[in-house]
């Protein structure tokens, strides 16, 4: 593992469970949303977290934001073990870790003028008096490309892109060191999306903030991330530098994901279509393996499935080219280690 001093965020064996079952029942079974996931985020870096719905990617973000509790594992932020904190979250942590959510309509209070999104946070953190806070809010709005005229508007009066700019202004006004972007550009149109992606990149350049960029969109994640972690069924299957991941994907799931992602050049699409069928033997979703047991969660769909995949959960291994993969194709598993 890398030198801990270098890392801003260090997530080790994070497991998150949630209560399954309907509200009528008194007792509920815990279900595994995130299963022993480890990764780190360095200062000034963007780590992409990709996965399909139900992969647990958003839950990881919520655990880091302390919106859900970790069942086990640790999250260290700048040396502080966040999972060991009690019910209360220290204000300092709240200030340094911020979030931009997917749906900017719902992430802004419809009853408040949008500038309040910024000033409320500032007030809570005791930053400046009323006049100063208004000044900071105006400056933050300007920095994200909004005019002072937008300050007094309500969220319903702004376009989707403008609302997301407000959300970014809110996150960055506290000068955080890490921003969790949970599907932050997914709801936007292409032309707006590129504006927001550029804005995030510019802000990173000027402030040195790190992003945990959670998305299902491979095209966006490739563009914005330095490194990318791929999640499947709550487990980390591959983590590699962005270019390496796309040029030489290791895990069969990563390959199938990249092959499925539509590209913008129609040439060779028949070839890609034929190739897609080869990566996965069984493409129907019912074949998804129930979580929590031993064995590779992808084995039901994997074209390269081996006997060992049914009995032993593949550990995450670091390969020579710097990527990390959890797949039995890369090295034989140590005997007896499961799950």
């Amino acid at each position: 593992m890398s030198d801990p001093a270098e890392e801003l965020l260090d997530v080790r064996d994070l497991t998150v469970t949630y209560e399954a079952g309907r509200a009528m029942q008194w007792r509920r079974r815990p279900a595994v949303a995130v299963d022993a996931v480890s990764f780190d985020v360095r200062p000034g870096e963007t780590l992409g977290l990709v996965g399909e719905s139900g992969s647990g990617k958003s839950t990881i973000g919520r655990a880091i934001l302390r919106l859900v509790d970790a069942a086990s594992g640790t999250i260290h932020f700048d040396g502080l073990d966040v999972t060991a904190l009690g019910h209360r979250t220290p204000l300092a942590y709240r200030r340094e870790v911020q979030a931009v959510f997917q749906d900017p309509m719902s992430s802004l209070n419809p009853r408040h003028a949008v500038s309040q999104a910024v000033t409320t946070s500032l007030r809570r953190h005791g930053l400046g008096d009323r006049a100063k806070r208004a000044e900071v809010a105006a400056a933050a709005f300007e920095r994200v490309g909004l005019s002072p005229a937008h300050l007094d508007r309500y969220s319903t009066e702004l376009s989707g892109g403008q609302r997301q700019r407000v959300a970014i202004a809110r996150a960055l006004a506290l000068e955080p060191r890490l921003v969790v972007c949970d599907e932050a550009v997914s709801a936007l149109d292409v032309s707006t999306q590129s504006q927001i992606v550029n804005l995030l990149a510019d802000l990173q350049e000027s402030t040195g903030v790190s992003y945990l960029f959670i998305t299902h969109d491979l095209r966006v994640v490739r563009h914005i991330s330095h490194r990318i972690a791929v999640l499947h069924a709550g487990r980390l299957v591959e983590l590699a530098p962005a270019r390496l991941l796309f040029e030489s994907p290791k895990h069969p799931y990563t390959r199938s994901l990249i092959a499925a992602s539509p590209t913008t050049h129609p040439e060779g699409r028949e070839r890609r279509r034929a190739r897609r069928a080869n990566y996965e033997v069984n493409r129907y979703e019912q074949s998804v393996i129930p979580r929590g047991g031993a064995g590779c969660p992808f084995r039901g769909r994997c074209a390269s499935v081996m006997d060992v995949c049914h009995t032993t959960t593949p550990p995450v291994r670091r390969l020579a080219d710097g990527s990390q993969v959890a797949c039995h194709l890369y090295g034989t598993p140590p005997a007896g280690r499961a799950g």
């Binding site: 919106l67 870790v97 911020q98 979030a99 719902s106 992430s107 409320t120 953190h125 809110r170």
Partner: peptide, 13 residues
Amino acid sequence: GKLYVDAARVAGL
């Protein structure tokens, strides 16, 4: 369940 409540918690309210 709305995100603005999450955002308020993230802001430390």
